[in-house]
């Protein structure tokens, strides 16, 4: 044990050096730019504050995204141009169409349920007594702390199915039997409902996120707004719909957007629960399989581009929202 600790000292030293170095450099830069008077400060400040992020994002995401777009017009080994063939495959192959349909279901259902559930829970939890609130939030937040692989272990113990002549290991199957069903369905095979059973896992994970962020936002609603609403005689549900929700609209959209993007990229759950079999594959999972298991780099890249495109309406909506917020301010 002591040996392990001694061994790890250099690692912590590296870490500290890194952190100290980073903050020293950033701190000095911020301080130095802060000293500059007059019009020169503003552009320099923008460069210092925004530059590092832009650099990281350009190298780590912009270039890879451009590369992916280029590869999506090439064949499986990226040696020849194939035009829109890969896209043609995605939109005409029945298996792929099913993948697109599943993804559509995911992005419609999972983010709305997570966000709505998080919102309702946050309003109720806000009214609970201190300790109860903390416990409730912690329990619902708990799944966030579990990796997706851990989550699939956990949910395997819920959906597992065996023939009724043997003892069940899955809680869900057993519960259905307790309620008098002789032979529960094999949930994971039950098309198309198996998609919803997988979505349940995502909702289970993301509701905690929605709850925590929304509840913080509700508590931040200024007192005077609530006071005014109370004086106007707004009752509970009315106050919720006409005061609380509009006041946190910005956060609501941020939460919904974040979960929606997480859902678009969902891949671990599907990979570990079904491997994309039984008509449960989604775009992100198919992208991974095509690119890294089957080495169809072209098709995999085209699927990634489909993800990029899918997010465009969301960007548009967020832009409108931001403009609106600015004009109100």
């Amino acid at each position: 044990m002591t040996e392990v600790l001694l061994d790890s000292l250099p690692k912590f030293a590296t870490m500290l050096q890194m952190l100290v170095g980073f903050f020293a450099i950033i701190g000095i830069l911020i301080f130095a730019v802060g000293l500059i008077r007059g019009r020169a400060q503003r552009p320099l400040a923008i460069i210092v504050l925004l530059g590092p992020s832009l650099l990281l994002v350009t190298v780590g995401l912009v270039f890879p995204a451009i590369r992916t777009i280029i590869l999506s017009f090439k064949n499986s080994s990226s040696t020849d141009w194939v035009g829109f063939d890969n896209y043609g495959f995605i939109f005409t192959n029945p298996g792929q169409q099913r993948v697109l349909l599943n993804t559509l279901c995911w992005i419609i259902i999972a983010p709305i349920i997570s966000t709505a559930l998080g919102l309702v829970l946050s309003v109720i939890a806000d009214q609970m007594k201190g300790k109860a609130e903390a416990i409730a939030k912690s329990l619902i937040f708990l799944p966030m702390a579990i990796s997706f692989v851990g989550a699939s272990v956990i949910w395997n113990l819920v959906y597992a199915y065996r023939d009724p002549q043997y003892e069940q290991t899955g809680l869900f199957s057993q519960m259905v039997m307790w309620f008098g069903v002789d032979n529960p369905p094999n949930w994971i095979l039950m098309e198309p409902w198996n998609n919803f059973f997988l979505m349940m896992i995502m909702i289970w994970v993301e509701t905690g996120f929605a709850l925590v962020v929304l509840s913080a936002s509700i508590k931040a609603i200024p007192k005077d707004v609530m006071e005014a609403a109370t004086l106007d005689g707004a009752s509970g549900p009315r106050q919720f719909v006409f005061v609380t929700v509009p006041m946190i609209r910005g956060t609501l959209i941020v939460v919904y957007t974040t979960i929606l993007i997480a859902v678009l990229k969902v891949f671990d759950i599907v990979q570990t629960m079904t491997g994309g079999n039984f008509n449960t594959s989604v775009v992100a999972n198919e992208m991974y399989n095509q690119t890294f298991v089957q080495f169809n780099v072209g098709r995999g890249s085209a699927l990634a581009v489909v993800l990029f495109v899918a997010v465009i309406p969301l960007i548009y909506y967020n832009i409108r929202q931001l403009r609106r917020e600015r004009s109100e301010r």
Partner: peptide, 24 residues
């Protein structure tokens, strides 16, 4: 700016060196 950038690289590089020797 250019000078400070160079220093950054130097610092980062030397840190990395220390890290790699210590870590490996």
């Amino acid at each position: 700016m250019r000078r400070s950038h160079k220093t950054t690289v130097a610092v980062l590089a030397s840190l990395a060196l220390v890290g790699s020797v210590a870590g490996c």
